[in-house]
């Protein structure tokens, strides 16, 4: 009999943000969003910055993650990410400031700026802003 449950852990370098069972998980994969149901095949892939959802019973939790890696094996999902925030915990002002900073750096075209990094920062800032303003769809 197949177990219809999976355990998910969201781990940042500083601490474990989430550790519980979930029936369905959506993460922002590098090649598009990934929905993961129980009994998923073993998988390791990269994640980009963006919102993720964890469904557990009839409740749905949202986090915004800052890139990372996901590992799925034996109904255990492990998400390693630089940061994971609940949308309600996001400081709008700070996120907006971060977005502007990243945009400035991208348009400045200076050789000493790490392009990839600025781009990642911009994506992260945009994801954070969007997560808070978008209405919760179910």
């Amino acid at each position: 009999m197949s177990e219809r449950r999976q355990r998910i852990q969201v781990v940042t370098p500083e601490r474990v943000v989430y550790d519980a069972d979930a029936s369905f998980v959506v993460v922002p994969g590098a090649e598009g969003d990934l929905g993961i149901l129980p009994n998923h095949a073993p998988l390791i892939t990269m994640l980009k910055s963006g919102p993720m959802r964890i469904r557990r019973g009839d409740r749905e939790l949202r986090y915004v993650i800052a890139g990372g890696i996901i590992k799925v094996k034996d109904n255990r999902i492990i998400i390693l990410t630089g940061a994971a925030e609940e949308p309600s915990g996001i400081d709008q002002e700070r996120a907006r400031a971060a977005r502007e900073r990243a945009e400035r750096r991208l348009t400045a075209q200076r050789p000493d700026i790490d392009f990839e990094r600025a781009r990642a920062a911009l994506m992260c800032a945009v994801a954070r802003l969007r997560a808070d303003t978008s209405p919760h769809r179910r």
Binding site: P13, E31, P42, L43, T45, I69, K73, D74
Partner: peptide, 24 residues
């Protein structure tokens, strides 16, 4: 060991992961 699916490829994920590992 079960066969993992690597997306886009094991090399690509490894490239992404190495600096993070050192930082850790």
């Amino acid at each position: 060991e079960p066969l993992y699916i690597f997306e886009p490829s094991a090399e690509a994920v490894l490239y992404n992961l190495l600096p993070k590992y050192i930082e850790t």
